[in-house]
């Protein structure tokens, strides 16, 4: 056994593997990305003179701006939609349901199949000859198949909301579960109706859970690539699809790296603003 001499050496020993892991797999790739973003692509090779040309291009190109804003908006819509749907489910499981474990298990069932399969399942449901259209046709609600279901932003939001629902339900469930029930009784005792009680006690106490749910969904969905390429069609393309093109067909790694970093920064910025706003709002509820 190693004889740990001091608190400090013990701390280093304990955090060492994680530090190494993070350094190797997060910090180093990020550094490479930053380096690439400052270089430029010539026809076949990369010019290693440091320049901000890529950034200039990214900021002036209307397509980049358009896709970036659309990505943020789609991710925002997914976040809003998912959290709004997840909250009542989490509320039910945490405060009303008798068999909590069973419900939690049921919620994780979608994870038992691959994400790609779930996306394809949505294609089957929403498609031109899909489940939804054939059902509506056969009962006579419509006489031509609906085309607005698939290959647009709506399909992207729907698919992502379904995929991310458990990630929203769980943190909200945990924060609801932690609420001491006598706090709710105290609010009632002090004259609150069920709605007042929810707004003044339950909601503010679950804000950390809501923030966590929002970040967990928002951050990865902004950069999601698979869903928009499969169900987004041309209207549903997002920034990740453009980045992929830079590293693939367009063969412009420096621009791709620049776009990645800009996407990361916008996500970080939106997330920080959101966290500050949400917790500020929570503090104002009295």
């Amino acid at each position: 056994m190693v004889n740990f001499k001091s608190e400090a050496s013990r701390g280093i020993a304990l955090s060492g593997p994680a530090t190494l892991y993070v350094g190797l797999l997060v910090a180093a790739p990020l550094a490479i990305l930053v380096a690439y973003s400052l270089w430029t692509q010539t026809y076949v090779s990369v010019d290693r003179t440091v320049t901000l040309a890529n950034y200039r291009e990214a900021f002036t190109d209307p397509l980049v701006r358009y896709l970036m804003i659309r990505s943020v908006l789609i991710a925002g819509a997914v976040t809003l939609f998912t959290v709004a749907l997840a909250y009542p489910i989490a509320y039910f499981i945490a405060l009303k349901a008798r068999r909590k474990t069973l419900w939690l298990l049921l919620i994780t069932i979608p994870f038992w199949s691959s994400y790609l399969l779930r996306v394809f399942a949505w294609k089957l449901i929403l498609g031109f000859n899909g489940v939804l259209n054939s059902a509506l046709l056969s009962i006579g609600v419509i006489d031509t198949p609906l085309t607005f279901l698939l290959y647009n932003e709506f399909a992207v939001v729907l698919t992502l909301a379904h995929a991310w629902a458990p990630f929203a339900i769980l943190p909200i469930y945990v924060s609801l579960q932690k609420i001491d029930l006598s706090l709710l009784e105290a609010a009632t005792d002090l004259g609150n109706s069920a709605v007042q009680r929810f707004l003044r006690v339950t909601l503010p106490l679950t804000i950390p859970g809501i923030i966590a749910a929002c970040l967990i969904i928002f951050i990865p969905t902004v950069g999601d690539y698979v869903t928009p390429s499969l169900v987004g069609g041309s209207d549903g393309k997002m920034i990740a699809n453009l980045i992929q093109v830079q590293f693939g067909a367009a063969n412009n790694w420096p621009l791709g790296a620049t776009l990645s970093l800009l996407a990361m920064m916008s996500v970080g910025f939106v997330a920080i603003v959101f966290v500050l706003a949400a917790s500020g709002l929570g503090r104002r509820i009295r």
Binding site: D180, L183, E185, A186, A187, P204, L205, G282, R283, I285
Partner: peptide, 8 residues
């Protein structure tokens, strides 16, 4: 019994 003081 737990006093139920609102923590927020």
């Amino acid at each position: 019994q737990s006093y139920a003081i609102f923590p927020h």
